[in-house]
Design a protein around this nucleic acid. Structure first.
Length: 1177
RNA sequence: GGACGAUUAGCUCAGUUGGUUAGAGCGCCACGUUGACAUCGUGGAGGUCACAAGUUCGAGUCUUGUAUCGUCCA
């Protein structure tokens, strides 16, 4: 047994234990047939990770989210559940494609159209591989106990099948339709983006007022005839230049009257199809039904009345209507279809041919020309400044254009209703419950879900289409061709949908849409041979994430378990030679965290894990790979040449050990799906309740007939020090690895868990640590925003050492070789200090376990049979039973508190009150176990006769603390568990055994049972007596502090109290000496205060400390006078209450009694204090 | 514009069905280090519970309004 270091070294523990757990398969969760005892399967516990995007690295939000899930998973695993935490990542359609496209443009000046669909997708896959590995390695550094064999990706084969089948089911059930809709068009990415993917920003803009001339048809020519309806598109009328006002169509003459309207987007007038007024607006009623001419195009459009679109009190009371480019106008069009729709926009955001002379211009350029031209034509009235809400794409950060296009939709009415009902029925519960509202409100709108995206990265829509032109006089031969084409559709694996449209020519256009099910490539080629073309669009990324809870478990495959990655697959590539490698020293922590797949790819070999007291381990690595390696792991490596012998030995060692492949598990049933579905709890943040949670419930019910999880735990968000949400665009993100590096994983996890209550979001002020002097420089908004301008990287200045340094920022990589001020946050010292306290408490315990013998403690009067075993008779300290009467006050007290604590922690975890659980544990360990129990047993540990029982209680309590803390701080607890196993492999007390199996400690704390300390250990009365002891000792310490009496100077104690208390005081007299160097000189009712003593009045006792020559009578009198004042105030307020008849009449009896008791206590204490004051005069 | 939440010590946050003198961590002040731990110990100072009205014997807690901040949805 080596003595523990004085300080906990997180990196050593982290390096050792993660691979220890993973190699032994502790993270694996298996269906019953693969469990140790298939006849008595464990209960499943399932958590599906909220899949992170492969867009980039993890941030604090992920760290919080992951910590809580791992905590729950480890806790349930210890409780005996087969606990699955399913890992994986999301392809994140738009986000990822946008990142890759942007980078490609910046670095190679290439657009996606330059490289083509296939090449772009290939590039994105490479990006995905890189970030998926990085994300997984980050999660492992956090200690994530996911079943890593089951890691899924939303675009992998398993998930793809689920997507394909779901789409097919939706399609066959008529829940998917294709329609023209006004969508949010991202002109940069050239795709529709969902409402949820746009942000609203107020920007400075203008509000122009123009007018259109009223025109009527030439009365002379058209008398008595209804005016010809102008066709909606009249390109022929578009003039070559706006300087010359285009001629109106034949027969339309201006009346000289004009109608004024205001707009923030003048360029859209090119797509106007009407002018609209309020039906009750008397200023305009005479104009309704008449027409205006758009000066720039000459097009004639009607004046209509619509009560919903127009607010007659705003502006001129008249608005232009551009159905193709404004959501409200589009809604108006749907009520007034006769006005038609003109789309003036190309997908890239430039004007199309309907823009006439403005075609090819961007919307912004067109706006300037339109305003100028309207002005020169005399139709401009005025312009004013105004802030206008402008939608921006969350992905490309460019302005959104409302745009009319063909999209795919899912009908939401019945699906949403089922998802709402599940919550109403209590099948899904939110924690905290208030989040139910946002879920219900959003689903209640039942807005159809636009699922198509014009992207290349994603699940391609499995619909093939072909248009057939069917002449009005269709011949049999023609009909046969069509029917032959369709006949092949009569198959199980596909579903046909047709729609017809009459053309002006009299022909019928028949659009055939064929959706083909998963696993039918034969059908795909048959349709393609018939000239059917697959839809170009891909699905909204939320479509696949909505299926996550069942797709990852292998649905729709009902006959086989989903494939897992066998650990043997991650063996190194044997085609290597020693000469290829160089040794690189890294921390063993980093080494242990190298993802296996990276190790394989980069040919990394662990040369040595022996630390030899240094935090250095070596790996062998191919030289050209070093920079890549450094980048992949986000850690810095220094060169150190390992000897060839060392490397050769490492290669031998690695390759001579034969891999042990997991045997494949054929099964006629997908047990994984049936066993682990539905999940228990989803842990997520509130901003995706609608986008993701609601949709998972919906698809789970639709595909599985069962909700995907019972509980939804919504945790707070971590904000920066200024109360802003952390985001890339704000530059205020914090990399959890910076914090882990500085404080250790356990400290970060424990602190993070302490944030997770149910009330509100939490602020995390951070600073930069000066690399020169270690001083912390608080982060400012300027630091967050600073980006390198012209090459020079921004720097922080240290107020202490006056030097400056580059700092970690999401905006830039600091220059190589530069000292970097990393992000730190004092708040994590909470967790770090606690870990250190725990470490040292355990260190102390283990230093005092010399000669420990396992033993039993029975309740008083318990059967002594086990003490009759052969070995116990020889040595009374060995396996000897002792009864609770042999236990000291402090032993019984700590067991009582431990029972209370373990019960509370379990209860709080069940309610997802992580903050409360950490607080309870910290208070117990620090304020009770360390501050009182350990201090009180020190004398006994030095006494061979007293030692055995103290050691047994100490081991049991420490053992329980380690187990209770394991889900919060896995690494330190494993380290302590292993150390404890060396010195005390058998632990536990009979009254409360380690587990049903016995008292032998498990090989890992991960697999130890969750503590269930019997409530019979609790003793409220004893705790109260203990509190009196504590109070007295605190009072004595108080005296010492007041009179600056050094702790080594012995003092005397005279206690005036009743006989019962006096007897107790004598029982614990040794503790007065131990804890406060105070000798109990006298205790009893007749104790007289010694002259010149400092005095304290406690609830049931008066304490006197004789201080001959030390006492400052004035100070003592002042202090006691102050105390008397305080008591008088208390007496006054309580008397006032009791004099209040209404209070006496209405307050409940217990409150009344409590008030009376308090008053009595105050009065007694005041009497004592007054006596003390008198004695001082 | 709607919904939800927040406002408590210098900072970051707890505070249960209304009921003693409103708590914690950090920071601050004083004292202390041969003995598990200075990432420590002992003691202390520090709050009109955002504001206003109401309900109640009694309000940090319940109601209404105001202000400020945040998030989500329009």
């Amino acid at each position: 047994m080596t003595e523990l270091a004085k300080q906990y070294e997180p990196k050593e523990a982290q390096a050792k234990w993660f691979s220890f757990w993973e190699e032994r398969g502790y993270f694996d969760a298996n269906p019953p047939s693969q469990q140790a005892d298939p006849a008595h399967p464990k209960k499943p516990h399932t958590i599906m990770i909220p899949l992170p995007n492969v867009t980039g690295a993890l941030h604090m939000g992920h760290a919080l989210n992951g910590t809580l899930q791992d905590l729950l998973t480890r806790w349930r695993r210890m409780q005996g559940y087969e606990a699955l935490w399913m890992p994986g990542t999301d392809h994140a359609g738009i986000a990822t494609q946008a990142v890759v496209e942007r980078r490609m443009l910046e670095e190679e000046k290439l657009t996606r159209h330059d490289v083509g669909r296939e090449a772009l997708v290939e590039r994105i896959w490479k990006w995905k591989d890189k970030f998926e590995e990085r994300i997984i390695s980050q999660q492992k550094m956090l200690g994530a106990s996911c079943d890593w064999r089951r890691v899924r990706f939303t675009l992998d084969d398993v998930c793809s099948r689920a997507v394909r089948r779901t789409f097919f089911k939706f399609f066959s059930d008529g829940l998917i339709y294709r329609g023209k809709r006004l969508v949010n068009w991202d002109t940069y990415l050239q795709t529709a983006v969902a409402d949820d993917e746009v942000t609203h920003e107020d920007v400075a803009g203008h509000f122009w007022t123009f007018n259109y001339p009223i025109v009527i048809q030439d009365a002379a020519d058209r008398e008595g005839e209804a005016p010809a309806e102008p066709s909606s598109v009249q390109p022929a009328l578009i003039a070559a230049t706006a300087r010359q006002e285009p001629r109106p169509p034949d027969g339309w003459q201006p009346t000289g009257e004009r109608i004024s309207f205001s707009t923030t987007r003048p360029e859209t007038m090119l797509g106007d199809t009407a002018v609209c007024v309020h039906p009750t607006d008397e200023r305009y009623t005479h104009l309704v039904g008449k027409h205006v001419r758009i000066p720039l195009t000459g097009r004639v459009i009607p004046i209509i009345a619509d009560a919903l679109l127009v607010d007659k009190t705003l502006g001129t009371g008249c608005v232009k209507v551009t159905p193709a480019h404004d959501p409200n106008d589009y809604a108006c069009y749907q009520r007034n279809k006769q006005i038609g729709v003109i789309n003036i926009l190309n997908p890239d955001g430039t004007l199309n041919e309907h823009g006439g002379q403005y075609a090819g211009l961007t919307m912004f350029a067109a706006r300037e020309r339109v305003v100028a031209d309207m002005q020169s034509l005399g139709h401009f009235e005025k312009v004013e400044d105004r802030t206008i809400p402008l939608m921006h794409s969350d992905r490309s950060k460019t302005p959104i254009e409302p745009y009319l296009s063909d999209q795919w939709f899912v009908k939401m009415d019945t699906l949403a209703e089922a998802a709402m009902q599940a919550v109403r029925d209590g099948k899904v519960k939110f924690f905290p419950s208030r989040y139910t509202t946002s879920y219900m409100d959003w689903l209640g709108e039942k807005r159809d879900w636009c699922i198509s995206r014009q992207l290349w990265w994603g699940h391609r829509i499995p619909v093939w289409k072909k248009t057939f032109l069917r002449p009005a006089d269709e011949t049999d031969e023609q009909k046969k061709v069509v029917m032959d084409a369709l006949r092949i559709a009569l198959d199980d694996g596909c579903h046909l949908d047709t729609s017809h449209r009459e053309l002006d020519s009299g022909e019928t256009e028949m659009l055939c849409l064929v959706c083909i099910d998963d696993g039918r490539p034969d059908l795909e080629s048959r349709f393609e041979e018939q000239g059917f073309k697959r839809d170009e669009d891909v699905l909204d990324t939320w479509f696949s994430s909505a299926l996550w809870p069942h797709a990852t478990l292998g649905w729709p495959n009902s006959t086989e378990n989903p494939p897992t990655i066998s650990r043997s697959e991650t063996e190194l590539n044997p085609a290597v030679e020693a000469a290829d490698f160089k040794g690189v020293p890294v921390s063993p922590f980093a080494l242990a965290m190298i993802p296996e797949s990276v190790a394989r790819k980069l040919n990394i070999l662990p040369v040595s894990l022996d630390t030899d007291g240094l935090t250095i381990a070596s790996i062998a690595i191919k030289e050209p790979e070093v920079s890549k390696f450094s980048h992949e792991l986000g850690c810095k490596v220094k060169w150190m040449v390992a000897s060839n012998e060392e490397i050769a030995a490492a290669i031998d060692r690695v390759y001579s050990s034969s891999p042990s492949p997991l045997s494949p598990q054929p099964s006629a049933k997908n047990q994984v799906l049936s066993y682990f579905y539905p999940g228990n709890v989803l842990v997520t943040s509130r901003d995706i309740i609608t986008l993701w949670v609601a949709r998972m419930v919906l698809t789970g019910l639709y595909n599985m007939g069962e909700v995907p999880f019972r509980h939804v735990c919504i945790h707070p968000k971590i904000l920066d020090g200024f109360g802003q949400t952390m985001s890339k665009s704000k530059g205020n993100g914090v990399d959890p690895l910076d914090l882990i590096d500085k404080y250790g994983t356990d400290a970060v996890r424990f602190t993070i868990a302490s944030f997770a209550g149910e009330t509100q979001d939490v602020r995390l002020p951070v600073g930069y640590e000066c690399p020169h002097c270690g001083n912390v420089i608080p982060q400012t908004l300027e630091h967050q925003k600073a980006v390198p301008g012209g090459g020079a990287k921004p720097r922080v200045k240290c107020a202490k050492c006056k030097q400056s340094a580059q700092y970690s920022s999401p905006w830039f990589e600091p220059d190589a070789g530069e000292p970097v001020a990393r992000v730190v946050s004092e708040r994590f010292e909470y967790g770090r200090n606690f870990c250190n306290k725990l470490w040292n408490a355990a260190r102390f315990a283990m230093m005092n376990l010399e000669g420990y013998t396992p033993g039993e403690v029975r309740s008083s009067g318990g059967s002594p049979e086990s003490s009759a075993t052969s070995e116990s008779s020889a040595d009374p300290n060995r396996r000897a039973a002792c009864s609770t009467s042999d236990l000291k006050l402090e032993d019984q007290w700590i067991l009582s508190r431990l029972s209370h604590t373990s019960g509370e922690v379990t209860s709080m975890l069940g309610r997802y009150r992580f903050d409360e659980a950490t607080r309870i544990l910290r208070d117990f360990v620090w304020n009770e176990f360390c501050d009182w129990y350990l201090e009180m047993i020190k004398p006994r540990l030095r006494d061979d006769a007293m030692k055995p029982i103290a050691q047994r209680i100490l081991v049991s309590v420490l053992d329980t603390i380690v187990r209770l803390l394991h889900p919060f701080a896995p690494f330190i607890t494993e380290e302590l568990w292993q150390r404890l196993n060396e010195i005390a492999p058998v632990r536990g007390l009979v009254a409360w055994p380690l587990s049903a199996e016995g008292t032998q400690a498990t090989t890992s704390v991960m697999t130890a049972p969750w503590p269930d300390v019997p409530t019979s250990c609790q003793n409220r009365d004893l705790e109260r007596r203990f509190e009196r002891l504590q109070e007295t000792i605190v009072a004595v310490r108080n005296v010492r502090a007041l009179y600056s009496i050094s702790p080594s100077t012995p003092i005397q104690l005279h206690i005036r109290c009743n006989a019962g208390i006096a007897s107790e005081m004598h029982d614990v007299a040794a503790q007065f000496e131990n804890l406060s160097k105070a000798l109990l000189a006298a205790a009893g009712a007749d104790v007289q205060p010694p002259t010149c003593s400092a005095s304290f009045s406690l609830t049931d006792a008066d304490v006197f400390v004789p201080l001959e020559g030390l006492i400052d009578r004035d100070a003592e009198r002042a202090r006691n006078t102050k105390e008397a004042e305080r008591l008088r105030k208390g007496i006054e307020s309580n008397e006032k209450k009791l004099q209040n008849e209404a209070f006496v009449a209405k307050a409940p009896p217990d409150v009344l009694q409590q008030t009376r008791d308090t008053l009595d206590n105050y009065k007694n204490q005041l009497a004592s204090v007054e006596a003390i004051i008198k004695a001082l005069e």
